Amino acid sequence: MQFRGVQPDRTTLAIALSSSAAMGILEAGEEIHAASHKAAFDTDIYVASALIGMYSKCGKTEMAKHIFHNMQELDVVCWNSMIAGLSLNSQDEEAFTYFKQMRQHEMLPSQFSYATILSCCAKLASSFQGKQVHAQITKDGYVSDVFVGSALIGMYCKCGDVDGARNFFDMMSSKSTVTWNEMIHGYAQNGRGDEAVLLYWDMIASAERPDAITFVAVLTACSHSGLVDAGIEIFNSMGHKHGVEPVLDHYTCIIDSLGRAGRFQEAEVLLDDMPYKDDPVIWEVLLSSCRVHANVSLAKRAADELIRLDPYNSAPYVLLANIYSSLGRWDEARAVRDLMSNKQVIKDPGYSRIEYEKGMQSGMVG
C-alpha cells in the first residue's frame, strides 16, 4: 500500500498497530508509529489508543504514557487503553491511580474500564479498593451488566470474600458461562470444593453449557478438596457428554488430584497414556505430591524429567532436596544442592505485600 503511494487513514494505522501488538513485534509497531507521525495521525484519538495498546503489549509502558500525556484530547478508549496496558504489565497500583484520575476528569468509565480495574484490585488482593469500585459501579448503573458482574465475582473471590461473591452471584438476573466459571473457580481457590462441585451440577441443570475453563475450575476444586472420585467422574464426562476435549490443564488437575490422594499407580497410568508428557507443569505437580507422600522413586523420575526439560528451573532441585532432607537422607540432599550449585541454578525470591490503613508495603524473601 505504501509502495503504491496510497496514503493510510486512521483505520489503516489502527489495524496495523493492532496486528503488531498481537504479534508483540515492537519494531513493526515503531515503523507504523513513524508512518502515523508522517501522516499527522499520531495525535488522532483512534490511532493514539492503538499506539498505547501496542507499546503496552510490547512492554514499553513509559512510551505508552508519553503518548497518552501528549494527547490534546482524551476519550474513554484512551483511558481504557492506558489502564489496561499498566495492568497487563503488572503495574496495578499505577493503573488504579489512572482510574481515579479518569474519574476526576469526569470521564464516565465503561464496562471495560470497570472489568479492568476490578482485575487490578483482585491481583492486589485489595478488597477495600474493590468495594470502592463496586460502589461506583452501582452508582453508574452497571451492576446488572454480566461482563462487570463476572469481574466483581472474581474480585471478591480473589480477595477471600467468597460469601460476598456468592451473594452477588445469586442476585444477578442473567448469567453467562463466564459468570458461572468465576464463581466455581472462586470456591476452588478458597478450598471450598464441595460447594464448587454442587455449583457445577447446578450449572449443568440450568442448561448452561460448560466450556474448557469450567472444567479447569471444577477439577481444581476437586483436587484441592480431596474429591478424587468426583473429579475423575467429571473428567471422564468431558468429551462424550459435553464435547470438550481434555487439554493440558485438565490432565494437570487430575494428576494433581491423584497425587494429593497418594494414588500414584493411577497417576502413572494416566501419565503414560496422555499426550502431554513433555510439559514441565505435569511433572512439577507430581513432584510436589511425591514430597507430601515421601514417594522417592517417583519423585526422582519426575525431577529427572523436569531437569531434562528445563535444566535451569530451580523447582525440581529444591523439591527433590527437600524430600531427601525430610527422610534424613542428607548425602543425597547435599548431592542435589551441589548439582544445583554447579549448574548455577538460582532460586527466584518470594514477595509479600501487606495492605494497611495508609497504603501498601512490599517485601522480598531471598
Rank of each mutant, 00 (worst) to 15 (best):
R166Y: 14
L339E: 12
V285L: 12
S144K: 12
L306T: 01
M82S: 05
K139C: 08
S119V: 07
R10Y: 15
G262M: 10
R291G: 06
D304K: 05
M63E: 14
M203H: 03
M364T: 14
Y55N: 07
I153L: 13
I15W: 11
A64L: 12
R103Q: 14
V365W: 09
S173W: 13
A135M: 08
V285G: 08
C120P: 04
T252Y: 09
A50N: 07
Y142P: 04
A299D: 02
L26Y: 10
S173F: 11
L327K: 12
E195N: 03
L51I: 11
I52Q: 01
C157V: 01
I232R: 15
D145N: 08
G243D: 03
P311G: 02
S18F: 11
N322M: 01
V336E: 00
A261L: 05
I213L: 08
H242K: 03
D170A: 11
L227F: 03
A303N: 02
L88M: 10
E233G: 09
W330I: 10
E93L: 15
A122S: 14
L118H: 03
A50H: 04
C157M: 06
A205F: 07
R334V: 07
S289R: 02
V292M: 12
K175L: 01
W180A: 03
Q265F: 08
A151G: 00
S18G: 12
R291M: 05
Q136I: 15
F264N: 07
L108C: 15
D194N: 14
L306D: 00
M171W: 12
F147Q: 04
F112K: 07
T179L: 00
G186N: 10
P109Y: 06
C157Y: 07
L13F: 08
F96Q: 01
I32F: 06
H105D: 08
N80V: 11
D338V: 08
G24H: 05
G243I: 00
V336R: 07
G363P: 10
V281H: 00
L74V: 04
G226R: 10
R4K: 14
G59S: 05
I323T: 03
L13R: 03
A165N: 02
A35Y: 15
E284G: 13
Y114Q: 03
G85A: 08
K100D: 13
Y142R: 05
S314N: 06
Q189T: 13
T179H: 02
S110F: 06
L270V: 01
R308E: 09
V281E: 01
A135Q: 13
H66P: 11
A165D: 04
P280G: 04
A321L: 01
N295K: 04
A335G: 06
K38W: 15
S81G: 09
K100G: 11
L258P: 01
G359K: 08
A95M: 05
T61C: 09
K343R: 09
P8A: 10
S362N: 12
D278S: 05
E355G: 14
D229H: 14
M172H: 08
S206Y: 02
E233M: 12
V318R: 02
L227M: 08
L320P: 01
Q129T: 12
Q344L: 15
L219H: 06
A165G: 10
T97Q: 14
E245Y: 13
K131L: 14
I323N: 02
M340K: 04
E266R: 07
V228K: 06
V162S: 06
R10P: 11
F99C: 05
Y156D: 05
A302F: 02
D42C: 13
A135L: 11
